[in-house]
């Protein structure tokens, strides 16, 4: 397969960026999207050019590092999928691809396709935990948890912190990300006790970090690679009362 790639190149936050067009040929359909970029980078290095920078690590859809907007869609058009899990066979009909970084006020571009998502860490630091003294804990089976609640908590905890929900949101809000954590912990008896305070602190931090607030556009749920549901936002709103 052959592709024409228009890739966002930007030297640093202070420099202006622009799309640069590259041609890649003879790509196997089973090549992943990121492997195609690797392949292009190998060519760039051979030509003596600076390779395109993009984030990745696990390449299995679990670490949340990869973060590309492809033809306008965070993580590409395919639903419930991270960028690293895209394969070129999905682009049979789209031979021209536009590749951009996550764009949001609170995720400043570092270089090319890489952005700074440390605001997410700050939000977790503001309260995304159970305030337990690490090192001492009661016998695990003393805390019984209804299976349904536990499964729901897991569904919320499946968030990989990628930030796609922010990028797609017209307000660049991180509400789904925050609600996923608030919900995960609130659904468990050992986490529920601090729920309200936790939610307040995390939402407060989210605003301090410059994310917008939620006005129910509902795009976030659609792009979330882990299917984190909007119900988590409803649950969080109830907790905040």
């Amino acid at each position: 397969m052959n592709f024409t790639l228009h890739i966002w190149r930007q030297k640093s936050l202070d420099c202006a960026g622009d799309f640069v067009t590259y041609q890649v040929d003879n790509i196997d359909a089973d090549t992943s999207f990121l492997e195609m970029l690797d392949y292009l980078n190998e060519q760039l290095i051979t030509q003596g050019e600076d390779a395109i920078v993009f984030d990745y690590d696990c390449r299995e859809g679990i670490c949340g590092a990869c973060s590309l907007v492809i033809n306008g869609y965070p993580h590409g058009e395919k639903s419930a999928t991270t960028t690293c899990q895209l394969y070129m066979r999905e682009y049979k009909d789209q031979r021209e691809l536009w590749v951009e970084p996550w764009r949001a006020n609170s995720f400043p571009v570092i270089k090319d396709l890489t952005v700074d998502r440390s605001a997410f860490d700050s939000i977790i630091q503001s309260g995304g935990y159970i305030s337990l003294h690490t090192g001492s804990a009661p016998e695990a089976n003393n805390i019984l948890i209804e299976k349904h609640a536990s499964d729901e908590a897991f569904n919320a905890a499946a968030c990989i912190g990628c930030g796609a929900c922010v990028v797609v949101c017209p307000n660049a809000s991180a509400t789904l990300f925050v609600a996923a954590k608030v919900s995960h912990l609130a659904l468990l008896p050992q986490g529920d006790i601090e729920s309200k305070d936790r939610a307040k602190r995390m939402i407060g931090k989210m605003e301090d970090e410059g994310f917008g607030s939620c006005s129910n556009h509902r795009h976030c749920e659609r792009v979330c690679p882990k299917g984190v549901s909007l119900q988590n936002i409803t649950r969080m709103n109830k907790i905040l009362g």
Partner: peptide
Amino acid sequence: NNIIDQAVAQGVPFAREYSGYL
């Protein structure tokens, strides 16, 4: 065993049986 206790107290959503036990 302490690890499991620690993780559960932190809110790690391990798989459970219908009875609520791990």
